[in-house]
């Protein structure tokens, strides 16, 4: 229990350190990310919080897949808010392109290949 809590806290802090510089621009200037994403005032705070949690969740998921904390954090930091929310909780379900072996072996393809190519 305490360990889980400590782990979670560590993730939150790690993510906070990384994303903090991007959330606010110079004091008083409205940042580009904010200007681009926020449409209603109710959205403003909620979207920041939700995104923060989703980022930290995604970092934990990456770590559970064997990445170290630093790599996981910087990899998640390079994603946009929309990408993080689309990925959160689905890391094991989305496609992972890997194999180079082309196993197009169905007979229909051979027929196809000679029948029509375009």
């Amino acid at each position: 229990m305490t360990r889980t809590f400590k782990n979670m806290l560590c993730h939150l802090i790690a993510v906070a350190i990384f994303i903090a510089p991007f959330q606010t621009s110079q004091a008083g200037m409205i940042g580009t990310q904010q200007a681009a994403s926020i449409t209603t005032s109710a959205d403003a705070d909620r979207s920041v919080v939700i995104n923060f949690l989703q980022r930290s969740q995604t970092v934990s998921e990456f770590q559970s897949l064997g990445l170290d904390a630093e790599a996981a954090t910087s990899r998640v930091a390079a994603m946009s808010d929309g990408e993080v929310s689309a990925l959160a909780g689905k890391i094991n379900a989305v496609p992972a392109g890997g194999d180079g072996l082309v196993v197009l072996i169905l007979v229909v393809f051979i027929i196809w290949y000679f029948a029509f190519r375009r």
Binding site: G66, M79, E83, A86, V94, P95, A96, G97, G98, D99
Partner: peptide, 8 residues
Amino acid sequence: SRQGSLQV
């Protein structure tokens, strides 16, 4: 662990 790369 996924032996691959995610689109995102």
